[in-house]
Each structure stands twice: as structure tokens, then as C-alpha cells.
Amino acid sequence: MSKKNGTVNGVEKIKVQKSSLTFGQKLWRNRTLILMCVPAIIFFIAFCYAPMPGIYVAFVKYNYRKGIFGSNFIGLKNFEFLATSGKLGMLTKNTILYNIAFILLGNFFAVFVAILLNEIQNKWFKKVSQTMMFLPYFISQVLIGLLVYNLLNYDTGFVNSILKALGTPEEKLFSPYSDPNVWPVLLVVIHLWQSTGYNSVVYFASIMGIDAEIIEAARVDGANAWQKIRYIILPGLRQTVVILLLFAIGGIVKGNFGLFYNIIGTNSLLYSTTDIIETYVYRATMTDFNFSTASAVGLYQSLVGFFMVMIVNFVVKKIDPDYSLF
């Protein structure tokens, strides 16, 4: 573990040196590092910060000719329809619960698959299987909706064809499209199926980044495979997990519209368990197209996400500042 100490000492050394410098001098020393960040800074200013004042559109009655900033200010009117729908609580809850399931199980399986892949030695098998795992990422959500329907529909679905062939009585056939209770599980499974292969790459690469000699030394010292995973690999992934979580939490009230809309569609029998903010807003404003309502909803989601992240980041920083995002 000399490595870690070395790093820490290195930092301390520099800190000691620097403490006597003024802030301006420190900046001057960092001039190359600043320059290295300049392209990215320009990028984020140009494509993310420059349009941001336009969020004002959520507070106006947008008139194309007058432009966003010339339009009439109408306060919180654009937020009203969501707030007074009586469904905001339910929608936010659904959205958050699904996201929590996606985040926790998604990361669990991604880590799981990455670790298993790391243990597998057959090079050919590893390449082929990982390539196959990427495939779902390329299938558009609309086609996934279509395939799921072909698999699960009552009359001609694949599942029921098998059940019928096995002599299942009609009342016991699978009919998910009229049963809201099965969808939380189905949607989570579909999401995991689609994202695990893609997400596991991050972890796989992180495992590859763990110093192989540490692992080897541990094995030579008699650690078994469990111990290796428990004491070396998992701690090595901790930081990646934390970062992923912090990003995911920022979007905790932003739903995966494509997934829900293409699979559930406008089947209102299933809304009690599957309606999320995005799908509700989409349906309600379908005949009343305007940019302001959408912006208002987005702003609400961002604010909730922002506060969640601030809290979580604060907690993480308390525990171990190394893991915090900023």
C-alpha cells in the first residue's frame, strides 16, 4: 500500500510549497492545466450555458415574433397544469421508484457481469459474448415495444402460444396488457436487459485498471476468489459506482420516455403502475402544443434533481472527499 502513501505525500509536499503563493501565482502555475480545460469550457458555454437564460420561456406566454425575452411574463401559470393535476405526487413517486430500481439493480448487474467476464479466461468466448451484450443497445425503443408485444400479447403472443401448447386453460393464460401489476417487474427486466451490457463496460474497464500485481500478490498470499473480489475488486470499483450514482441521482425525476411510451403506449389500464411524468405530460399537452409547458416541467425535474445531488454530494464529501464530484 505504499502507492497510496506516496500519492498523499506527494500532494502534501506540493501543498506545503504552495501555501506561500498567492491565488494569482497559483493560477499562473496552473496556466497549462487551465489551457487544457479551455476547449471543454468553451464547449459547455456554447452549448449548455448560452441557451440557459432561455429557461425564462417557462415563465412567459411565448410569442414567436416577440422572442422569448420579449414575450409577456405570466409567472407560474405554465407550472399550474402539473401542480393542479392532482397527479404530481403519484407521477413523481412512480418516476423516482422506477429510477431507483433501474439505478440499483442496473449497477448491481453491471458490476456482476463485469466481474464474471473478468474471471472468464477464454478470449474468444469473452469477445463474442460481450459483442452480443451490446446488441440490445442498438435496438430502437419502438422495435423493442413491438417485440415485447409480439412476445406477450394475449391472442397470438409467443408466451401464450407455448402455454396453449402445454394445455393451459384459457383463464390462466398470461395477459399482461390488462394487468398493471406485472409491469414494474417487466419494465425493470426489459431495462436491465437493454442496458446491462453497455453499462458493464465501464466496470469492466475499471477492473482492468486495477493493478494486476496487487491481485496476483494477494493470490500468492493465499486469498481465494471470493476474497479477491471482496477485498480488491469491489473496493477498486467503489469510486466508479459513486460517480455513476451521483449522475443518476441528478436525473432521478427524469423518466425514460422512450421505454415507457413504446411499451405501455396509451393503454390506460396500465397507468396506475406505469405512468411517469414524461408520459403524462406528453398525453396532456398533445393537442396543446407549446414550448413553455415542456420547459416548466423540465425545470421542475431539474430542481428536484439538483437538491438531491447537493445533499448526496455533501454526505459523500463528509465521508470521503475523494469520492465527491465537486
Partner: peptide, 10 residues
């Protein structure tokens, strides 16, 4: 119509 008409988008 089909049993699952509400999702019969294809």
C-alpha cells in the same frame, strides 16, 4: 377487435 387492442399499434 383483438384482446390486447389497446397496445395493438403494429
Amino acid at each position: 377487435w383483438k384482446t390486447d387492442v389497446l397496445n395493438n399499434t403494429s
